[in-house]
Design a protein around this nucleic acid. Sequence first.
DNA 1: CCGCTCTGGCTAACTCCGTTAGCTTTGCGG
DNA 2: CCGCAAAGCTAACGGAGTTAGCCAGAGCGG
Lengths: 191, 191
Amino acid sequence: MPRAGLTPERVAREAADVADELGFDRLTLAAVAQRLGVRLPSLYKHIDSLDGLRRDVAVLGTVQLTQAITDAAVGRSGEAALHALATAYRDFARGHPGRYAASVRAPDPGDAEHVKAADAALRIVLAVLAGYGLTGEDAIDATRSLRAALHGFVTLEAAGGFGMPRDVDRSFDRFLTSFDTTVRNWSGRTR
Amino acid sequence: MPRAGLTPERVAREAADVADELGFDRLTLAAVAQRLGVRLPSLYKHIDSLDGLRRDVAVLGTVQLTQAITDAAVGRSGEAALHALATAYRDFARGHPGRYAASVRAPDPGDAEHVKAADAALRIVLAVLAGYGLTGEDAIDATRSLRAALHGFVTLEAAGGFGMPRDVDRSFDRFLTSFDTTVRNWSGRTR
DNA sequence: CCGCTCTGGCTAACTCCGTTAGCTTTGCGG
DNA sequence: CCGCAAAGCTAACGGAGTTAGCCAGAGCGG
């Protein structure tokens, strides 16, 4: 029996692919093992458990998502940065639904690597909003609103929750424009 | 062996309770049967399958969520209605996380009862936004933004995704105020 | 070049869950 | 009072995750 040459990274990557194709909740050790041409128990030489593998996918997804939005936002500011970041976020969620779903679960506070990856993503969003002059509590509130809206949007889109015929791209664009206006007046109290 | 007097409704309600307590993804026929004081296969006299039971919980959750936001919004308009609806939405999601998670999955188009429940919820949101003078495509875009933001907010809150110490209630309130402003100027193009 | 060890793969076995088949008994309608 | 549909049961199966223990092969020291 020739060695397959597996590593924890290789297994996590294959698991992420499975999650993308079948859905994160359908990620199964049996499927991963089959794709790697290996019997199921052999995976345990590289992972802790199914839950551990899920965490590995979450970290991988978070890192890649962070990379995507960083690449998009770098070199831009203001609305251009916001638009680029949001588009990259949505594209990632659509292109890698399994990784994306995994990345949403909050990291275990004791899991340094996972926490670090999540923090990096957060920092990018804060940096973009800093370009609007937001800092401190305002920045936190605005970040939460943006993350919530982005997450909700891509989740509902993925779940098919937008039953109406209206083009989703245009709704997304409209939302971004509105959010830009909102955040621009964030501390200005337009009311 | 005395009869337990189960009905499909009774089973669905117990399943919803299990989902609320353990999480929708941990909903298991074994747990439901045990709580009802019945052997697992007996459930099949009242349900189709685990997936069918999940659908039942989804319908129950959607109906109850719709009821909650309807009660909150009725008799109010404008920002008061928006605020009441959003608060009721968030409260429901926090009080019944399992039912809420179930309600997010888009209904099977051929499932009339489920589709009807989902439509009812949507209509309430549209009605509240109609109070801002939004109709047609603007109303659809705004509805999507509101639903996305609400959903994203409660999901991230439930997942513990708001790691920052800042009070979540205040962030939510801030978000609502901003959204009110945004939707008020939706077609006004404040830019 | 030989042998030792460590490691990555394997098989076997167990548990738990969902599902189906078929039996038994209850309780209601005629 | 009798019969029958329905509600509950036991038995059995398959598939998933997990653990234990075996075995071969790659790489290293001598």
